Amino acid sequence: MREPVRIEGGATGAPSLEELLARVAQGDQSAFASVYDTVAGPVLGLVRSVLRDPAQSEEVAQEVLVEVWRLAAHFDPARGGATSWVMTLAHRRAVDRVRSAQAASDRDARAAQLDRTPAYDEVVEQVEARLEREQVRRCLGSLTELQRQSVTLAYYRGLTYREVAELLTQPLGTVKTRLRDGLIRLRDCLGVSA
């Protein structure tokens, strides 16, 4: 078993990663070069373990290191070590890439599914709707006058049975019976199964 690589400052007198990040936060490019040299390998290793794709892993590792440069001022040593902070950034970015790739794959699958559905034909739909309207008109014409008026007022104008009865000056029971009989005749005329 190999010894873990120590990436904190130590007895050599080199500045610790925390100190380097503080200098990076102030815009010190040479400090960032040291941070880069120190964490690039572990970051790439972590990202590769999540993504598995070497090319994507290199891209994400580069994004993480750019993020370290941009966010160095946000590092708070009181909340944890510099290595943990950098590796957390790396892990989050790698997981985001996996989720993004999965979402893209899901979108592609849904798009492919939609491509398999039959195309909507507007002309056919318009013709069918017109034919259905004509058939309903023809069937309405086969009703008695009171049945036709009752059905038209109740279903096309949205009136209640009581309102239809008042408008036609007919007893409520008569209107209900004519509506029921009219709907049965319409159903039979249109060929709708009960």
Rank of each mutant, 00 (worst) to 15 (best):
A104L: 06
A101I: 02
A94W: 02
D53H: 05
D188P: 02
D181A: 13
D37H: 11
M1E: 00
E125H: 14
V5D: 03
E8F: 06
E59Q: 14
T83E: 15
V43D: 01
D188L: 07
R99P: 15
R93E: 03
A165C: 06
S193H: 00
P77D: 10
R180L: 15
S100Q: 13
R70L: 11
Y155V: 09
L114K: 10
V35M: 03
G182F: 02
D115C: 12
E163S: 04
L186K: 07
R79F: 04
L114D: 15
A119N: 14
R23G: 05
G191N: 05
L167H: 09
Q56L: 15
Q149Y: 08
S30H: 13
R79A: 15
G41D: 09
D188H: 12
T169D: 12
R137F: 04
C139E: 02
W85H: 06
T88E: 04
E59A: 14
C189D: 09
D37G: 11
G158C: 07
G9M: 01
C189G: 11
S142P: 01
L146I: 12
C189K: 02
D53M: 07
Q113H: 12
S142Q: 14
R162N: 00
H91A: 07
V124W: 13
V127D: 15
I7F: 05
R187S: 10
R6M: 07
R48A: 14
A129I: 03
P15W: 00
V151N: 03
E67C: 11
V47S: 01
D53I: 09
P77Y: 04
E18L: 03
R93D: 01
G158A: 05
T169C: 13
Q26Y: 03
E59G: 11
D115N: 12
K176A: 15
G173D: 10
D181N: 13
R110W: 09
V24N: 05
I184P: 04
V24C: 05
G10N: 11
T177M: 12
A154N: 04
G41Q: 08
L167R: 08
Q56P: 00
V68D: 02
G80F: 00
V175L: 08
V136Y: 03
V5M: 00
A33L: 06
M1Y: 02
Y36D: 11
S193Q: 02
T152V: 14
L51M: 04
D108Y: 09
G158H: 06
